[in-house]
Design a protein around this nucleic acid. Sequence first.
DNA 1: TGCCCCTTTCAGAGGTTGCTCAGAGCTTCG
DNA 2: CGAAGCTCTGAGCAACCTCTGAAAGGGGCA
Lengths: 246, 246
Amino acid sequence: MNTTRSGRPALTRPDGTPLRVLVVDDDPDLAEVLTGALRYEGWEVRAAGDGASAVTAARELLPDAVVLDVMLPDTDGFTVLRRLHEVKPEVCVLFLTARDAVEDRIAGITAGGDDYVTKPFSLEEVVARLRGLLRRAGMARQLEEGPLLTVGDLVMDEEAREVTRAGELIELSPTEFELLRFLMRNPRRVLSKAQILDRVWSYDFGGRAHVVELYISYLRKKVDAGREPMIHTVRGAGYVIKPVSS
Amino acid sequence: MNTTRSGRPALTRPDGTPLRVLVVDDDPDLAEVLTGALRYEGWEVRAAGDGASAVTAARELLPDAVVLDVMLPDTDGFTVLRRLHEVKPEVCVLFLTARDAVEDRIAGITAGGDDYVTKPFSLEEVVARLRGLLRRAGMARQLEEGPLLTVGDLVMDEEAREVTRAGELIELSPTEFELLRFLMRNPRRVLSKAQILDRVWSYDFGGRAHVVELYISYLRKKVDAGREPMIHTVRGAGYVIKPVSS
DNA sequence: TGCCCCTTTCAGAGGTTGCTCAGAGCTTCG
DNA sequence: CGAAGCTCTGAGCAACCTCTGAAAGGGGCA
């Protein structure tokens, strides 16, 4: 089977071809980071820097999803959205927006089932939202099982934002939730603090790796509390999560 | 079974094909929003910007329902209506109209079983009215069970606009009712304040997400009053409704 | 054993998010 | 025309979350 750098099988559509995504942002650095992360996840990625070239690229690529900055130099997000839907009516759109602008002119967009994230965002959030969109659209074969992420007796329901261990409900803060999700999406794999920082914290975070240690400590208190531990430290390398028995 | 992006089963006719709706409005943004929302609900959607193209599109699509702005650039709504009925006599029509124009002549139209909403409207309202029309016309298989929406011991009768919890009647204002309906149509799924705003409040609402918090607070006082809570806050993410036991 | 460095944990400051109350303006209805 | 009800704004408060700094704990190697 076709696999990606992440070691997971490539995301494919019912017909076996890889899922295609178009990234539209006028900040080249940000576009680069997004492109890399999505390619790593198994997407076929293409980037555009403004509304006009986005529509052109969409016509060629016929993407399954679009990551779209609402603030573009040439066109407003609403118009781009309409053009995209003309090209491909069932396309999923994930909007990127500044925090203050949220209330502004986003009205109506999520109504169509589309979603948005506010800048500055974490890559984990973008990837997760995109997966959510695709899952609801029923586009990716691999995602059809549903939104349940399981490692041993630890279960995460991404839609309900609910985590249980051995059936017992665990309450998590937003950051704790994202960190745990990242760990659970990579079970039995050692993740370095730098990797975790890059993925779970937003791209403009200036802090040190110490926060990761701190949040791992928080997670352990809630997830491993009084039980056989599932989160393990690998000295000098990072952290792993794995089922207890092995 | 064929499902939609909302995760609900697609709306289908007795013969199994998806329900078709034609959206007719000359405001492209509004048409886009309506189109997206209805597609998300499982409709096969097509849009038109004026009366002439509406009739043409209707001839091709043979829609089960039409969402029709009564103020169109070329033709008046009633002429379009007559033409539509020539094309397909049993079509259901939901009129969009300005508030002032209500009394005018709409009253006569709705006698035929059709319905109308006044601008500015909320998407939740449009979608619900359309469902109501189809249900009364007996067109959609899934809707025939009746208008009862149930989550745990909380029951909503959409047609009677009546809500009970554990058999006890709960009085709700219009906005409270629509908010609760949206929550109940998405049980166990976290809905962000932006999503709620997009769906429950009208498209021209300029206010902030604070209103959502306020109305959630109202709802809790009525729905959860002194009982095991069903409406939960997920900090940093939104709100969920779910049955008590889990 | 002793030391160094990586890791864990604690305590708290500062900021953010969400809840509630009170009231003003508007609409509806009698 | 008046009363009642509904919707929204603003402000204050409480709870919570995130991160910093410091100190304690523990592994592994000389």
